[in-house]
């Protein structure tokens, strides 16, 4: 898919609007950098919110309220994309609880998945997920881990055609099934692909990220911190002095800046249970971002630790 002039103009206009809004609110947190969805030009903040494990809190009223606070901080900091899946236990109803408590923020970009081996049950699962969220429709539905992907993609493209969803995608994680992933990307007009990419998991750079750019597909990056293992591993290490050049004050920001500065990446979706962390994550998408040379320096630094 090619980025057309119309798409480019829409994206540029939206970027301009974002800058104006940012400038018009003195004292407000700086707005995160925006990325265009290649297939539409719609602008999205480069950092979203994942819900794997963190939002699976069951019926626990205390933890549900904590999740709602994380969502409130996320939207207040300019976030939009929240990503979940039927696989994530109670995460979907917990998101629905948070959205209800926050009076259904208009900024929400809802990213869901279909994950069921019986392809015929896909529509019912998507409808159940929609009810859990309490949204009129999902912005994006992705085929989770390529489960029954052929039939689910047919369903999703048909839903998109009649306006029941806005975008279609597929997901993988931790470098699994990249060969098949590439084949599907080459053969189908996907709006988004979701994959694992970070400063130490760089397999996607070889074929998937260039292909996404070539095919005009948005890229959602999951497991930016390797489910927290990467930030825990780096916790005892000092940030390099030159991290200040790109405005990274913490390892989390260092890693997120590395991810979102890749030209093919649209949104990274770190998951967290903490309000201070969600703010920190959104802040990573503000200020200067590393160029190609700096990105290599960042990767080399972490590799050599």
């Amino acid at each position: 898919m090619i980025i057309t002039r119309r798409t480019f103009v829409k994206a540029a206009a939206a970027s301009g609007a974002a800058l104006v809004l940012s400038a018009a609110a003195p004292g407000a947190p700086p707005a995160p950098v925006m990325r265009a969805v290649p297939s539409s030009g719609e602008m999205l903040p480069a950092v979203g919110l994942g819900t794997w494990i963190t939002f699976n809190v069951g019926d626990d009223p205390v933890l549900r309220d904590e999740c709602a606070e994380v969502m409130a901080a996320f939207f207040a900091a300019g976030g939009r994309m929240i990503d979940s899946s039927p696989m994530y236990g109670s995460s979907q109803p917990v998101i629905g609880y948070g959205l209800e408590k926050l009076s259904r923020p208009e900024a929400l970009f809802s990213a869901e998945k279909v994950w069921i081996s019986s392809a015929a049950d896909g529509p019912a699962q998507i409808e159940q997920s929609r009810r859990f969220w309490g949204v009129p429709r999902f912005d994006l539905v992705q085929v989770h881990n390529l489960v029954a992907w052929e039939t689910h993609l047919e369903t999703l493209f048909a839903m998109k055609a009649v306006g029941q969803i806005r975008y279609v995608g597929i997901t993988t994680s931790e470098g699994r099934r990249h060969d098949l992933f590439e084949q599907i990307m080459s053969a189908h007009p996907l709006d988004f692909v979701q994959l694992t990419y970070n400063v130490v998991d760089r397999g996607a750079e070889e074929r998937l990220l260039p292909l996404a750019a070539e095919r005009g597909m948005g890229v959602i990056v999951n497991r930016p911190f390797r489910q927290g293992a990467l930030t825990r591993q780096l916790q005892g290490e000092a940030l390099p002095d030159w991290a200040a050049v790109i405005g990274a004050k913490t390892w989390a920001q260092f890693i997120l800046k590395f991810i979102v500065s890749h030209p093919s990446v649209t949104v990274a979706i770190p998951a967290t249970t903490r309000v201070d962390h969600v703010r920190e994550n959104l802040m990573a998408a503000t200020g200067p971002l590393p160029d190609a040379a700096m990105r290599e320096r960042m990767a080399a630094y972490v590799r050599d630790l």
Binding site: V57, L63, Y88, E174, R176, R177, T273
Partner: peptide, 24 residues
């Protein structure tokens, strides 16, 4: 499940320790 050998025990854990013990 494809590439099952790439999965670790932790990959099947859907919740945090805090949520687990709060359940009790």
């Amino acid at each position: 499940m494809s590439e099952w050998w790439t999965y670790r025990l932790e990959d099947f854990l859907l919740f945090s320790p805090r949520v687990y013990w709060r359940m009790f």
